[in-house]
Design a protein around this nucleic acid. Structure first.
Lengths: 335, 335
DNA sequence: AGAATCCTGATTGACGTACCTCAGAAATTG
DNA sequence: CAATTTCTGAGGTACGTCAATCAGGATTCT
């Protein structure tokens, strides 16, 4: 009733259990001829590994580290929350996740955090800096698998990137911005820091679309808000002195300041931001924000763990495994 | 390391393994005092039954049926594809999934399909009809757990619904339609069949938003395209005789006809459709469609299986487990 | 020919739970 | 007090896979 087992495969292939095991878990040491026979037997019997039994038997414990900025608001808070929730579930799959918080924008601290990690794989969210790239390269050389999270670090030699296509995110923002503001007026772009690759890529994508298809708008010079609410608020208020401020595209954190600023303006500029946080959700619902482009960080964490497991098992993860989907939220589809 | 086991519970409760087993699987024959002690020990240790080991031990195989319309195009094709892909993975978890295709819009055939099913749980996608509701009620009474998929059947007494909030889907479509067409012109709505609850709910949501916030538009009477490309094409061409056709909202299938029709029109009306299929993806990319509102059917299938398993285990699934997210796609974020 | 290497078989003990039997202790009954 | 019933303990086997060991046969090399 419950399907064929390794025993049946062994019988059909005329080999021992040990040999079937060697083939199935490719441990090597089996001649090509026998390998073929076993594989044929698997196909013939329709054998499928019983995952429950496999997990039960194999008691390997994976040790993964997440090196990410600390923070108790916005997206970073959601990331920590998602990690905490997943930790529970992952325990049951013998995955131990350790979170190593770093000081935001502090390269030295982030480098220090990457030192002396005791684990099989690391997921890093950091800005682009040569020191960090070097540290990651060193980690990688010492046998630890490394993936970049949310913001890619392509020149670090990381094994994989888990996060959204940030150029696409920016392009998407541009598309909706252009249509919503009817292709006219000034548009303010606020990034957190241009050193953060996710921010600069979004900016790039946004600019591209606006220039390609919405030439009626004027793009103001990109401002840097340092993910700081007060800074962001000031930037907006300053830009709003010009009466033709039609749209605001906010990349990165500091949305609370953005809400405060936009609420004082009349007419209210079309506002598009990233990441569905309690703040942006509320602003969306109340009509202060017009669109939120979100990366589902929980699915990102899940994907990251999966890829880290694949990497430590030396099985190549599927090519698109790390690509997190972009979710678009308007006031009508907040969930 | 990998969580407490029955052994730990037994030790804490100062009883034997056999007694813990008797309590956990309530086999009776244990005094109230000891039962309490064991339960306290469970709470104290944080013991959770290892489902994998349990299923392994008792050789349980889940048998689930998906009763869904047949079809090799559009959303239904994607659904079948997703099921086929999941089937592979689910075999490993001792879940046997059987797909029972039904003739679309054929109530009699769908009722027949629901008869004589040999399984633990069924997922049904069907129109609303009293005969179907009755059949589901009968199934349910005979101990089979039933969930509705994509289109809800609330008065059937199904155990759960897995699918998007279709009113929300319609409202979202309305929100973007209103903003894109700048609140003026005629809007054509094409449903497949108003008997399909997902269609009627989307229509309802769309109408609500348009009336609430976009009073400048005129809603044409809702047309029924029977999920048929030719029908849909004709409906559009007819409505387009009026020069003020500013927008089209297409619920349900038949998008190939929609593409053909819209391509002949100038100016091209703003077109919003449902489900990201090869057809709608291509239309989005080429600029024929403006927005696609998609339900990720793969995640729907996964959620459905999870819920069916919970139901057959008599553990109540989390309240929001069946809610599939809505994904919004513009030409810039197709993936 | 002898030694080294490679391939395969046979066997064993986990993993955590379910389910069974048998025996003995404790509590209840007549 | 003896006879019964109720409760509990001890121990075992099974589920299907992983992982490891040991031993011996077949090849290849020197």
């Amino acid at each position: 009733m419950s399907g064929p087992t390794v025993r049946d495969v062994a019988e059909v292939a005329q080999v021992s259990l040990a040999t079937v095991d060697r083939v199935l878990n490719n441990r090597g040491g089996v001649s090509a001829k026998v390998v073929d026979r076993v594989k044929a037997a698997v196909a013939q019997t329709g054998y499928v590994r019983n995952l429950a039994a496999a997990n039960l038997s194999r008691r390997r414990v994976y040790r993964f580290c997440f090196v990410i900025p600390s923070g108790d608001t916005g997206f970073i808070a959601l990331l920590h929350e998602a990690l905490a929730r997943e930790q529970q579930r992952l325990m049951e799959e013998q995955v131990l996740v350790q979170v190593v918080p770093t000081k935001p924008f502090d390269v030295e601290d982030q480098v220090a955090a990457l030192r002396n990690l005791e684990c099989d794989a690391v997921a890093v969210m950091a800005s682009e800096a040569p020191e960090i790239n070097e540290e990651i390269a060193a980690l990688h050389a010492s046998g630890v698998r490394v993936i970049s999270l949310v913001a890619d670090l392509p020149s670090s030699g990381r094994d994989a990137y888990v996060g959204p296509d940030n150029v696409m995110a920016g392009r998407t923002a541009g598309e909706f911005m252009g249509r919503f503001i009817k292709d006219q007026g000034n548009v303010l772009m606020i990034a957190g820091s241009l050193a953060a690759r996710d921010h600069s890529e979004r900016l790039l994508g946004f600019r591209m679309v606006m220039q390609e298809r919405f030439g009626g708008c004027t793009l103001l010079p990109a401002a840097q808000g340092a993910d700081n609410a007060e800074r962001v608020e000031q930037i907006v208020l300053e830009a709003a002195r010009d009466r033709r401020l039609a749209g605001i595209y906010a990349i990165g954190a500091g949305n609370r300041g953005l809400v405060r600023a936009v609420r004082t303006l009349a007419p209210r500029p079309t506002t598009i931001v990233h990441e569905l946080t309690p703040t942006s959700r509320e602003a969306l619902r109340s009509g202060t924000f017009d669109l939120v482009i979100d990366q589902d960080i929980l699915s990102g964490v899940i994907a990251a763990v999966k890829i880290m497991r694949d990497l430590t098992e030396a099985t190549t993860p599927p090519a698109d495994a790390g690509r997190i989907k972009l979710n678009i939220y308007s006031r009508e589809n907040i969930q």
